[in-house]
Design a protein around this nucleic acid. Sequence first.
DNA 1: GTCTATACACCGATAGAC
DNA 2: GTCTATCGGTGTATAGAC
Lengths: 186, 186
Amino acid sequence: MSKATVIPQLMAVFQQYGYEGASITRFSEATGLKRASLYHYFPNGKEEMAAVVLDYITQALKEQLLAPLHSDRPPIDRIRAMNQKVDAFYQHGQQDCLLALLSIGEAHQLFQAQVQQALHLWIDSLAAVLVEAGLSSITARHRAEDAIVQIQGALVLTRGLNDTATFERLLHQMPETLLRPDDTLE
Amino acid sequence: MSKATVIPQLMAVFQQYGYEGASITRFSEATGLKRASLYHYFPNGKEEMAAVVLDYITQALKEQLLAPLHSDRPPIDRIRAMNQKVDAFYQHGQQDCLLALLSIGEAHQLFQAQVQQALHLWIDSLAAVLVEAGLSSITARHRAEDAIVQIQGALVLTRGLNDTATFERLLHQMPETLLRPDDTLE
DNA sequence: GTCTATACACCGATAGAC
DNA sequence: GTCTATCGGTGTATAGAC
């Protein structure tokens, strides 16, 4: 049992219970390791676990969600490809986003820097594609922010309404919405 | 000290710490009442407190945010009026939404019905105004969902980026966005 | 590296005096 | 209605055997 093996299992616990609701007992049940063994891997306990999980999902963001944005296909195909990954990553909206969960309560202070960095990476990567597609720099940035807002907001609505329809609809129409002509009113 | 007096104080604790992070000790500090006194008002403890707070904010939703939608002014003015209230209610995006916080972890099971009802009320009220403005029933519903998605997503982004700019921008451009002509592509 | 055993703080909840 | 005192349970974290 290596450290890398347990990280996805810790991630699942954080996703299901949030930062405060995630306890060492639950981590122990999820990994099959006893408390003391977890402290062997993560001497700083829950806080260190969350930090490592955040590094892990930042890597997943780069390698899974953002990688399709750097292909040589047309911009709209790249965004479609990203959204396919987004749909899988969040399991059609039924999986909570750790970037959102870890900016609540006590966790907000602790992980703000890491969360901020990941969100900026996402926005910047998407905005770069929109600039390449011919949008102005400022419009591209706004649209990229809007995309992340839609994803995060749709995740909230999916949980609250217990219905993935809005998440799926917004993901589906997002590529065209993001690439619509620049009104210069924005 | 009456029961109604402490509800806003309990709400503030839930908003700051989420459901799991909110403890009786913190409620005691926020209200000035000792633990046993809180159990006098809320025999079922934290769960009952959250349920009462949810009723309170559902009432606030109706009386503060949705009331402007029922005036006799043009639809765009009514939506602008709602968004002014939204901006104040969430303190320019810096105040977390309890409907989102109470659909996480353990709280999700407990309060799903109340959260769902409040969100549907919000969406239905907004969609009714959009229908009155001439949009088709299905488009109105989608746009109303989009509005709640934008508000909730922008709240997430405000926390994560520590910047209220996106929240303010989206609120400002929302009235025109919601009332734009129906493409019938939606 | 993994375990058992344990220390100590805080949690939710209740009993009972005033 | 508000308090002090207290209970059992769970939380984080560590010591030390194997």
